[in-house]
Every structure is written in C-alpha cells, then in structure tokens.
C-alpha cells in the first residue's frame, strides 16, 4: 500500500515522551509525515523540537508511545527486537553528526561495517567498501585511518558506510555541521547524487540553512510537531 503509493516513510500521529511524572517531557506530540521514495526530506527546527526523536523513531532505534510509523510498509511497533535490528541493518543507512568512524579501523574497514553486520565475509565486505569509497572520491584513501583524513573526507567515508549495503532509506543527523561551507556543499551534492539513485529516500536532520537548497521538501518542526512542509527554503 504505502510502497505502491511511492511512500517510503509514513508517520501517523506519532507520540513520544521521555521520563515520568513531573519530569515528563513530550518530545513528539502527534507527528504526521510522509517521505516519498526518491525524495530528500529535511527536518529543520530549533533545538529540542523533536527532530532527533523523530528520526530515531523512523530508524527504529526508539519506540514511539503511540501512533504508527511505517518504513516501506513495515511497522517497527509490530516487530520483535531481533527482527527490528535485522531490518534496520538491511534497510537503513546512517550518517551521524560526529561521523562516528571507528578510529582504529581504516577508511575501507569503516565503510565495510554495515556489510559485516549483515554477515558478509570480511574480504568481500572490504572489497565492496573500497568500490564505494571510489564512488565518493576516496578510492586512494582506503587504507587511511580516520585521524589521517580531513573532516570532509571522514564524512565521505561515513556516506560510503551508509550506502555500502544498498539501503532503501538513509538517515542523516546534521551531516554538515562539522564541515565548512564549501565542504558541506560538496558532501550534500554527493549525498544527493548517490543516495537518491535507485529509488532510495533520504531524511536529513539539519540546522544548516546553507544546505536547504538540496532538499526536495523541508519539514519544519516546533514543539514536537511538524508545523509545515514546504518545497523551498523561501517558504519557511
């Protein structure tokens, strides 16, 4: 149904609270959001508005309290922990704000991690990771450690890692916040080119107005709700 409609992610009235009693904080107050296949959706808004909580729920690493959240027709709420973890490993790619590359692994080994998690043998995983590094322009840096790479290069390794296992959904948390404007621009160009190929969809959480131009749609969040979904930054 959702997939046939071209909807990759559908959130209906998603509520999430943290804590209990007087210390309870409502992070999502009934979020409705659709993200289509082949689309780059940006989630923007002030700190604490629920962006990170929402992508955590969408990525299946946080359970919502109520409401439905389907990813390619699968509702994490109705999956066991094991199935959820496996589905996440196969279907979703992650790009983190702080890159989160393992400092003792080479760039190729870092990029190979999702394949290793999915049970691909080491040699094949590293070979495929090298091919992906080649696509992000780091073909010659496969043996470099993260500490030997610039911030932009590290983020490109993180992008290679997010794409190497051919996921259908890519979730990015502030992918350009640690990069200068020029590098951030190049990284977004790359993500758009690679991530949106083959009918994938991309959800990017960001504060960085400089990259809004790369979005197909922008969802503005405030106080746990999606206030507005627009197609251009000028409409925000």
């Amino acid at each position: 149904m959702d997939v046939a409609d071209g909807v990759a992610v559908r959130c209906d009235d998603v509520v999430k609270t943290y804590g209990q009693g007087s210390s309870q904080v409502v992070a999502l107050r009934g979020v409705d959001l659709d993200v289509k296949t082949g689309e780059l959706m940006m989630l923007v808004g002030p700190s604490g508005c629920g962006k990170t909580t929402l992508i955590s729920v969408i990525a299946g690493i946080l359970d919502q309290d109520s409401g439905d959240c389907r990813v390619f027709g699968h509702d994490f709420k109705h999956m066991g922990q094991r199935d959820k973890t496996r589905y996440r490993g196969e279907t979703i790619g992650f790009v983190f704000q702080a890159f989160n590359l393992l400092p003792t692994l080479t760039a190729a080994e870092n990029a190979a991690v999702p394949l290793l998690i999915n049970g691909v043998n080491r040699r094949e995983a590293v070979e495929r990771a090298r091919a992906m590094l080649d696509r992000v322009g780091l073909g010659d840096r496969g043996n470099a450690l993260p500490s030997q790479l610039s911030g932009g290069q590290q983020q490109r390794v993180a992008i290679a890692r997010a794409l190497v296992h051919n996921p259908r959904l890519i979730v990015c948390d502030e992918p350009t916040s640690a990069l200068d404007a020029h590098t951030g621009h190049k990284v977004m160009e790359l993500m758009r080119e690679l991530a949106l190929a083959d009918g994938r969809c991309l959800i990017v959480v960001t504060h960085d107005a400089r990259i809004f131009e790369f979005a197909d749609r922008i969802a503005r969040m405030n106080d746990g709700r999606v206030e507005k979904v627009v197609t251009s930054a000028s409409e925000l």
């Binding site: 690493i61 973890t85 496996r86 490993g89 979703i92 999915n118």
Partner: peptide
Amino acid sequence: LRHFAALKAMGAANAT
C-alpha cells in the same frame, strides 16, 4: 560507548 551505540544503530544485535 559512542561506537558501540553506532554499531547497534547500524543493525548489530546485542548478541553480536
């Protein structure tokens, strides 16, 4: 911890 969390987010099961 951050790296273990990232591995878990990327699909590494608790058993792994």
